[in-house]
């Protein structure tokens, strides 16, 4: 974007003012995340920059909050829990979500639109309502405060993301490929495995990453459904933020930011690969 040749002085001023406004909004988005990273290396137990940090005194920086986190059995336990629950919830959500998206993408599926709406609804319904419902129901059937209960809950929350990303990759899908595969003697299962799945793989993987991050980040259902034994990283952070005693949460936050950067990079690369595969030219 550059200002047109016929722009007057007012428009040129506006052109630069506009860019400054946009810069400020982008700063508002990114600054709160970036600011945590240096703070997590604070040598003092404060949540703000010390004198020494501002003058870049090496004495003012340390890894003590990272050491604190690694040596704390509660943190280690919550990291393990997050990985276990996230892993299984991701696998189940990816499996069911992909199958649902495949079924829903066929034009003759009955009740396609209402089914789609129903399956996506966990993403839209307020988490507090989902959590309340699950709390009452899971308590009755003995799934509250158990690992399977949390995995089931996170699976339900992850499925909509998989459906959306897989449906998106299926949009450019050439239905002739299925007929071609069938005419060569493959049964529907083989066709799905050998023809469809490789083509929609980018969507499946990015859906899996969304499901993983949903489980990894989920706090409301965990608050209601997990016992002391099942507490996850978000639950540990929740307690840390409430008590606000030690900047260990800043170290944990910095590690989670690194995870977010890795996930974002992975999804971006997948998206480009998928566009290349489907022949969508980047615009």
């Amino acid at each position: 974007m550059s200002y047109p040749v016929y722009a007057g002085r007012l428009e040129k001023t506006w052109y630069y003012a506009f860019r400054i406004i946009c810069g400020l909004v982008l700063f508002f988005l990114i600054a709160p995340i970036v600011v945590l990273i240096p703070l997590s290396f604070n040598a003092e137990p404060y949540f703000t920059f010390s004198q020494g940090m501002l003058t870049l005194d090496p004495q003012a920086f340390s890894f003590r909050w990272y050491e604190d986190m690694i040596e704390n059995p509660q943190w280690i336990h919550s990291i393990k829990n997050s990985i276990i629950i996230g892993f299984f919830a991701t696998i189940f959500a990816t499996f069911f979500g992909t199958l649902a998206a495949w079924g829903l993408s066929r034009p003759h599926t009955p009740f396609r639109v209402p089914l789609m709406g129903l399956l996506i609804s966990p993403m839209i319904v307020p988490l507090i309502i989902t959590a309340a419902g699950m709390f009452f129901f899971y308590s009755k059937v003995g799934l509250a405060q158990t690992y399977p209960g949390l995995i089931m809950a996170h699976t339900a929350l992850g499925i909509p993301f998989v459906i959306i990303t897989v449906t998106a990759t299926l949009m450019g899908f050439d239905q002739d490929l299925i007929r071609a595969s069938a005419s060569l003697g493959a049964n529907p299962v083989t066709t799905f495995r050998k023809v469809v799945l490789p083509l929609i793989m980018p969507g499946v993987i990015s859906g899996a990453l969304f499901a993983l991050v949903t489980s990894f980040d989920e706090i409301v259902v965990v608050l209601f459904l997990s016992g002391f034994k099942q507490r996850t990283i978000p639950r540990q952070m929740w307690v840390g933020i409430r008590e606000q005693i030690s900047p260990t949460i800043l170290a944990a936050a910095t590690i989670l930011i690194a995870v977010a950067v890795a996930l974002l990079t992975a999804v971006e690369l997948l998206r480009r690969r998928s566009e290349r595969l489907r022949g969508v030219r980047p615009t």
């Binding site: 709160p32 703070l39 706090i219 930011i257």
Partner: peptide
């Protein structure tokens, strides 16, 4: 725009408190 989207909600809340 996308990095905040992927960053844990609790991380963003921590940073606003800070």
């Amino acid at each position: 725009v996308l990095l905040p989207f992927w960053t844990s909600l609790l991380v963003r809340l921590t940073s606003w408190i800070v």
